[in-house]
Design a protein around this nucleic acid. Structure first.
Lengths: 206, 206
DNA sequence: ATCTTAACGCAAGTGCCCTTGCGTTAAATC
DNA sequence: GATTTAACGCAAGGGCACTTGCGTTAAGAT
């Protein structure tokens, strides 16, 4: 139902036009989307508004992206690549605490909150969910360097689960931002790093 | 702008009618909302649909609850009070693992996922956010018995932060369900309990 | 320079969330 | 039983996400 006159599904079914106006429109819309997110977060994020900001018709946005959620995803993938800096202080504890602190500050911004909220919305559609999975995996791999360096230095056992460790560190910060759980105390990042490394039972410090 | 002829803001400004039809309508709508959530989760949750299920006009729902999110909140507060059973096995580790397992299973159901998603939506409005805060606090207090019993038995230090401990246990499960992060492995609850108690460094078991 | 057509602008329309005015029902009071 | 009025049903409408058909623009190939 896709091919019309033979085997033409592998390389390029139809002639695309990646240069000129198309690229200009795409860049303008994504930039406008990031601006709108940075201003009002996800609450006031509307396709019509983004289209006006980009100087583009609303139908164009829907034809290229398909839905509000897909536009959100693409904007995140394109404009939020910088992400959170991964510290390298030479010690696992300080690295984890610094990363957690940076994450907490980022989640407090309209843009940071929008990332998490957009991801929750995208978990309905299986295709979007898969894209978000790779998005999170990419970020997890970056921050995973903290744990991997800790293992190399002998600070952590060799069989340490990198993903699980970072999940335990980041998940509380994300849920607080998402659910409005409770305010993010300034010392929370350090306390999370402490419990993560030593567990609840050994409370020698503090 | 609320009072019309004096000081009548403290006890009861106007004569309410808690009996009869009003209570019947309220119960019918909330029950219909829970049914709709259990079937399709938050995705297909519509006010018009709930109104039809309850045999009530749509405008009635909006006059009593105000918005889709407020209706969601009230339905959760009323119908999801049962919550997750808090185990009492006599040991902290097994209690934490069992509770985490029950939470993971609940979050996998349409209703469980709807609770978390409804809470993320409600974090925009300050009034709703406060209601959700008390909702989570109530659940946290219930589960906090696990940690408190552990402290009493001497399994945990006296200065253990109950809230932080449960947050570290539950947050990863919630983010996985909310963000579609990655599938919930069956052994995840136990591993979370292990790391939470002993930390990443002491990996004697496993 | 000319042709082909992907991509865009315009306009009309659907569905859902939400609001509002008006008449009606029925709960609470007398 | 008669009266008052809170709460409901009905109907019309605005706003936003999303779709679609049609004519126009301009990128890429000849």
């Amino acid at each position: 139902m896709t091919g019309t006159e033979g085997a033409e599904e592998a390389p390029d079914p139809i002639r695309r036009r990646p240069g000129g106006r198309a690229a200009r429109v795409r860049a303008a819309v994504l930039a406008a989307a990031m601006d709108a997110l940075a201003e009002g977060g996800i609450a006031g994020f509307g396709v019509a508004d983004v289209a006006v900001r980009a100087g583009v018709n609303e139908s164009t946005v829907y034809r290229r992206w398909g839905s509000r959620e897909k536009l959100l995803l693409d904007a995140m993938l394109t404009g939020s690549d910088a992400g959170i800096p991964v510290p390298d202080t030479g010690e696992v504890r300080t690295d984890l605490a610094a990363f957690a602190r940076a994450l907490a500050e980022y989640m407090a911004t309209p843009l940071g909150g929008a990332v998490a909220r957009a991801a929750t919305l995208g978990s309905d559609d299986p295709v979007l969910a898969e894209s978000w999975r790779t998005f999170w995996q990419s970020r997890l791999d970056q921050a995973g360097a903290i744990v991997r360096r800790g293992v190399e230095r002998g600070e952590l056992p060799p069989d340490t689960d990198t993903g699980l460790a970072l999940e335990l560190l980041c998940a509380p910060l994300q849920t607080r931002a998402l659910l409005g759980h409770r305010p993010l105390e300034p010392d929370l990042p350090e306390r999370l790093a402490d419990v993560l490394l030593d567990g609840l039972r050994s409370r020698d410090r503090n």
